[in-house]
Design a protein around this nucleic acid. Structure first.
Lengths: 219, 219
DNA sequence: TAGATTGTTAATCGATTAACAATC
DNA sequence: TAGATTGTTAATCGATTAACAATC
């Protein structure tokens, strides 16, 4: 029998962090870990760890804990990173270049297949080993290379336009670095990286340091 | 009389987005808006908007709604971006360069005063109008320029070391792009930008598109 | 076996939504 | 004034934590 269960985004937000800690445990040769010990390292409750994991199945063993490598691999499956994903970058500026030149993403199976820009002065130039391509090559490239993910490292207006275009070309997800919301069809995943919002939250926390409280006038 | 009230991080996470929408409303000449109309644009409930804002005071007027410019300015105050913040970037790679060359942050009052790197081959080179400085100049520079925020665009091991160092130099916050947690003293704010975790969440959402549900075996 | 620790249910806590009196 | 919309309380919903029986 099969049942469909809603997983809250709070849980999803934590999964990659579990994955990172487990990866580091593997690196340091740890083979098993209890929710209690992981809880101490990660500064979350053991209860939360067990609840989170049990959304996806029972990966541990009573009296023993969790096998680190097994749990690591299971989380990879849950996150869909047990296979590769083809990606392109649109916007060959510094940020686009940073993504291309980072080895981190390839290590997790996100393969950057191409970089695009609309600036013709960049034609023929390279970022790392990749030729910068022009926008008229985009559509064909997406089809031929089975591109699933498009990272947008371009200004917000351009991002809105290009997002619409690539959605029609059948891509599965947009990794949006532009400071705007993208209204996409239901079946296109959008993951936003809004750096200036991150910086504003940082600023808020500077202004309200003492225990995350805030003084308001009353009476 | 004064009372201290806890503001949840869920609220803080939404504030910059309100701020962005209000900024766009100003640009398009809109002078007043109701929670209902803002709710339609932003796709959150009107109730949530009113609740969120009322954590900080009553900024609206019954029967009228909110004055856009006034609310915009009040949120700026709440976020602490009604003044400038001096910032430095440590790590003169593509990502560091992207931050330096983006005008977005300066526009919000985050002034990038310097860029540092430990690679001596970069000595004397520039990013934009800024000279790349070496790490031995760091301590003095922080003091002389009243640096509050340090952005770390360096690998994780280096990030942990440098974070410790600058915390001792009295900076207020770290904007951490390295894929590691930083264990800092209570009074140092840490805001993480973990790009590979963002990409993993995206991947999860590709794998579990249909209404954020997931099939698990039962029985 | 005894001890440890999970998986899971129940209790608590917090966040979101609904409702409406206050009032512009 | 009548209509609109806030500020705020109450109701609901969801997420986190606590507790413990199951079991390795």
């Amino acid at each position: 029998m099969e049942e469909t269960k809603k997983i809250s985004s709070a849980v999803i937000r934590r999964l990659p962090r579990y994955y990172r800690y487990l990866g580091e445990l593997i690196e340091s040769g740890v083979q098993r870990i209890s929710s209690k010990e992981l809880s101490a390292r990660m500064k979350v409750t053991a209860s939360q760890i067990r609840q989170d994991l049990n959304n996806f199945g029972g990966f541990g063993q009573q009296g023993y804990g969790y096998n680190v490598k097994y749990l690591y691999d299971e989380i990879a499956k849950i996150l869909g990173i047990d296979r590769t994903h083809n990606m392109i970058i649109i916007g060959a500026g510094n940020l686009g270049a940073a993504l291309v030149n980072s080895g981190d993403f390839a290590k997790r199976g996100f393969i950057i297949k191409g970089v695009f820009d609309n600036n013709h002065e960049l034609k023929g130039k390279k970022i790392g080993s990749l030729d910068i391509m022009m926008m008229d090559e985009l559509k064909g490239f997406i089809k031929e290379n089975n591109i699933e993910i498009v990272a947008l490292t371009i200004p917000r207006q351009a991002a809105r336009e290009v997002a619409k275009e690539v959605a029609e070309d059948g891509i599965k997800a947009i990794w949006n670095f532009a400071h705007t919301d993208l209204n996409m069809p239901e079946d296109v995943v959008v993951e936003n990286v809004h750096l200036s919002e991150s910086l504003m939250r940082l600023s808020y926390n500077i202004a309200n340091k003492n225990g995350k409280t805030r003084n308001i006038q009353e009476g």
